[in-house]
C-alpha cells in the first residue's frame, strides 16, 4: 500500500493560442501513491470545477499507453520522469511529499498551444498524409501473407511501427525536430517489401512536408530517443538519412 503524498502543482495556464500564458500553483493534499498522473489531474479538475474555476485542459484518451494522445512536460521530462512510458502510465508514487511538480505543454513552433497543456499536433497527421502509407490497387489484392518476410525484417519494422506519434521527440528536442517520428514512420514502411516500392517517393514527400511545417534540423543530440515512450532509436534516423540521400542521388 502506497502512502499518501501532498505536493504543489505548478501548471502552465493559457487561455488561447494568441493569449500570453503563465504558471499557476495548485496545492494538492493526500493523493495516494497509486493514483496515476492523469487521475491526479482529474482530481485537481474536479476540485476546480467545484470551486467554480476553469478546469485545466490537457490531452488524454486510452490511458493505457498505446494511443499517443497524452502529452505533458513534467519536471523537465516529456511524459514525466519514467522511462519508456507515457504520461498516463506515470504514477504518483514516483514523487515525494512536498515536491513542486512543474507541468508544461509541449513547446515547439510546429505544435501551437490550443489551451493550457493541450497543443495542436495536427502537423504529424499532415506528414503522414504526405506519404506515410502504401498504395494498393483494390479489387483483387494479394493475400497479406503472400510475400514472405524474414523474422528479422518483420521485427525491425514492428519496432519502428510501435511509434505512437505522441510528439515527445519534438518536445524533447532542442531543435524542435520531428526526425524520430518521421524516421520511425518511414522505416516501418520502407523496410517491408510492400512499402519498398514507393520508398524514394515516400521519404522525399514526408521530409518536404516536415520541413514545410517548420520542424527543426536534427543535430543528433539523442534527446528524442532518451524520452521516447516507445524506445524508438536514432537507428531509424540513420535509416531515413540513408534512404533520403539515395533517393536524391538517384534524381
Amino acid at each position: 500500500m502506497d502512502k499518501n503524498i501532498s505536493f504543489t502543482l505548478k501548471i502552465w495556464r493559457q487561455r488561447g493560442p494568441k493569449v500570453p500564458g503563465a504558471f499557476k500553483e495548485y496545492p494538492m493534499k493526500d493523493i495516494p501513491g497509486d493514483t496515476s498522473f492523469l487521475e491526479m489531474m482529474d482530481i485537481l479538475n474536479e476540485e476546480l470545477i467545484n470551486k467554480g474555476e476553469e478546469p485545466v485542459v490537457f490531452d488524454h484518451d486510452c490511458r493505457e499507453g498505446i494511443c499517443g494522445m497524452c502529452s505533458l512536460y513534467i519536471n523537465g521530462y516529456p511524459h514525466g520522469p519514467a522511462t519508456a512510458a507515457t504520461t498516463c502510465q506515470l504514477y504518483m508514487r514516483r514523487f515525494k511529499d512536498g515536491d513542486v511538480i512543474t507541468v508544461e505543454p509541449w513547446r515547439s513552433a510546429a505544435f501551437p498551444i490550443i489551451r493550457d497543456l493541450m497543443v495542436d499536433r495536427g502537423a504529424f497527421d499532415k506528414i503522414i498524409q504526405a506519404g506515410g502509407f502504401i498504395s494498393v490497387n483494390t479489387g483483387a489484392p494479394q493475400d497479406a501473407n503472400g510475400i514472405l518476410i524474414s523474422k528479422k525484417v518483420a521485427d525491425r519494422a514492428m519496432d519502428a511501427a510501435s511509434c505512437i506519434g505522441c510528439g515527445a521527440c519534438v518536445a524533447a528536442c532542442k531543435n524542435g525536430s520531428a526526425m524520430l517520428f518521421v524516421s520511425s514512420k518511414i522505416a516501418q514502411l520502407n523496410i517491408l517489401p510492400q512499402g519498398k516500392v514507393e520508398a524514394g517517393r515516400r521519404v522525399k514527400a514526408m521530409i518536404a512536408k516536415m520541413d514545410e511545417l517548420g520542424f527543426g534540423n536534427c543535430t543528433n543530440t539523442r534527446a528524442c530517443e532518451a524520452e521516447c515512450p516507445k524506445s524508438e532509436t536514432i537507428d531509424n534516423i540513420a535509416f531515413l538519412n540513408r534512404d533520403f540521400i539515395v533517393a536524391k542521388l538517384k534524381d
Binding site: 505548478k10 512536460y73 513552433a109 527543426g216
Partner: peptide, 17 residues
Amino acid sequence: LNRKARGSERYAVTVRP
C-alpha cells in the same frame, strides 16, 4: 532555423538525459 523551430516560449524546467 532550429531556434525558430523551437519556438519563442522556453521550458521552465529542463533536464539533460
